[in-house]
Write a protein that binds this DNA or RNA. Structure first.
Lengths: 345, 345
DNA sequence: TCATTTTTGAGTTGCGTACATCAAGAATGA
DNA sequence: TCATTCTTGATGTACGCAACTCAAAAATGA
């Protein structure tokens, strides 16, 4: 095995190739104005020593300052707040790398509002990470930003048709399938009905989760009958009412899947109407509340994505794009985590 | 909300505080030789602008070159190889940051060999990440290295009594408990025996997993009877023989927990003696093989830790130690992952 | 010769650090 | 006692780190 790098510098390579540092630099960054023959010699010298320019020196010389925005839904969504908390934790790191991150809250459920917000970002930022609704106007707004040279990353919920550079989040269909398998298997042979509570199906992530969930249950657990999903807008009170209604209407509900936030409301309703053979309850996202429920056995499993990972990943990807560094795909891939009582982080 | 940083430089702060850059630097790094009054003024100026020195400039000026070693077990352990593959994937990143990483293979199960290997590292490296046996001599060797100023990180399996700076890996007791809960819950009301196959109980991680596993099963699933763990040294053939033996001796084995590697051997034995009501099979670590088994339904769940995360985390932690930067605890914490068919990454 | 392409050289980026400087008090000697 | 040297602690200066960049020079081609 060979040494991964030596203390070589651009200057050394220049001497070796018989050209000046400026020429090496041009070759290194694929800029024009270098004769083919010269470029070949330079490349050879670089390969020979496996030379990589020092990231520190490059960063310093470029003296870039990056301004990023992170667009988040208004309102008290615990998961979104966790992402922001994690961004805040990076503040020292960000500052020392000359990166500023500004949070912008808007109504991501309203295409007009979101579109307007996105449009207002042009020229003020070098990149955005946005939690976005999948809507034609939003897609257009994203494409506009990209056309203007801005780097755009979708966060948590994707906008697949758009020209965004990257999506930081999970495959929500797979997440729904995971929830389905968990409820199906943890329930065992018992038959009965399954309730599904969502925030809003107009949010792509919720719709996708429900799709995956129903797919698995219909195909593999036919003894479980799916109730039509109800939508509570991720609000605790609404969810509590809806869930209570379902439990009153159907005595044989043996499993509950809460697709979005507002888990506390759903949990309240379930707690108020216990069943001797416990119902299986699967929810999303690990928060203080869901953690306590897991420990108490009120929730059987949480399907989760790490807000810390998403926060860091969004920033890292934007930074890599802005300073054209390589993105480590493996590192930036967000996992669908299954959290039970015993593997709580 | 305020801007997280401005394009301020050390020089600006120096001017503002009425001192020279050298003094600012002294204050910034807690070096002596600054009057208290002066230090106060400097601190004020720094706080006022929320100044952070540019990481790029600092790295460049220090012009450090870091040599790290990564000590791994000899032999064809798939999981260990995955870690190394991930380190190799970082080679460009490492080179551009003036970091070299050298892999050293040794018999980590033999305290003498491991101790000798560790001792040989002194002065040749700035830091080591080591998969280590928990043994008195190994502990002493680690403490020696630390005393000599080397940074030591334990990987995958910890050496708790030692003075290692960091452990990159999971809580193996919790991992065992997780496996226990999975087998218990996925099995449902059915009663029968549970087989446990390990590599070697002298490896701390395996012993801990078994401990956690038994704890949960005894306490919460008394209708499942635990067989004594068998040890196959993580080898496929041995595991296959042992597992076959168990299945022949006990017709009522309803669940199998493979604690270490050599999953293929265990799977073969199980496949050769099918049961109409399928046995629950839980194994560790996501590899090509376990992935296929999950998809085919031969394995019900895999308890895993991300080799990529461990590789990157080990390097990041060593780098942070060597260049005294802050370690983001949240980022470096390795999760116990539950992987089922639907949330395969 | 003039226009174009290719190449060079010098200056820049912000921080770390070895060394220089400087003031003030302590020790020394006549 | 007073001038001188020695210490000691506090602070400042200037150069180096390695790459990027732009204006200017050199080479090339028509």
């Amino acid at each position: 095995m060979e040494t991964l790098s030596g203390p070589l510098t651009l200057k050394d390579i220049a001497r070796e190739a018989g050209v000046s540092v400026a020429t090496i630099d041009r070759v290194l960054h694929g800029r024009s104005g270098v004769r083919e023959e010269t470029a070949r010699r330079v490349h050879e010298a670089i390969e020979r020593h496996n030379f990589r320019p020092s990231a520190a020196a490059a960063d310093l010389a470029r003296a870039r300052f990056s301004r990023f925005a992170i667009v988040m839904p208004i309102g008290p969504n615990v998961f979104m707040q966790l992402i922001l908390d994690n961004v805040a934790d990076m503040s020292g790191w960000l500052a020392s790398r000359r990166v500023s991150v500004e949070t912008i809250k808007t109504d991501v459920f309203d295409p007009q509002a979101l579109t307007a917000t996105l449009e207002s970002l042009a020229d003020r930022f070098d990149g955005v990470a946005t939690v976005a609704l999948d809507h034609q106007n939003v897609r257009a707004a994203i494409d506009d930003l990209v056309a203007k040279g801005m780097f755009v990353v979708t966060l948590v919920s994707d906008v697949p048709g758009s020209r965004r550079h990257h999506y930081v989040g999970i495959d929500n269909v797979a997440a729904g399938r995971t929830a389905g398998t968990l409820i199906g298997r943890l329930n065992g042979p018992r038959s009965g009905r399954i309730a599904v509570v969502a925030g809003s199906q107009s949010l792509r992530d919720h719709a996708e989760r429900i799709f995956g969930f129903q797919q698995v249950l219909r195909l593999e657990y036919p003894h479980l009958e799916l109730l039509a999903p109800v939508e509570g807008g991720d609000r605790d009170e609404t969810n509590a009412q809806l869930m209570t209604g379902l439990l009153e209407a159907h005595a044989d509900i043996v499993g509950v899947y809460n697709v979005g936030a507002g888990t506390e409301g759903v949990a309240q309703a379930i707690r108020a109407r216990p069943r001797s053979d416990r119902r299986i309850f699967v929810a999303h996202d690990l928060t203080d509340f869901t953690r306590r429920c897991l420990l108490r056995g009120e929730i059987d499993a949480v399907v989760s994505q790490s807000p810390g990972h998403e926060a860091r990943s969004a920033i890292r990807v934007l930074l890599a794009l802005a300073r054209d560094e390589r993105i480590l795909a493996e590192q930036e891939k967000i996992r669908i985590e299954i959290v039970m009582r015993d593997n709580l982080p």
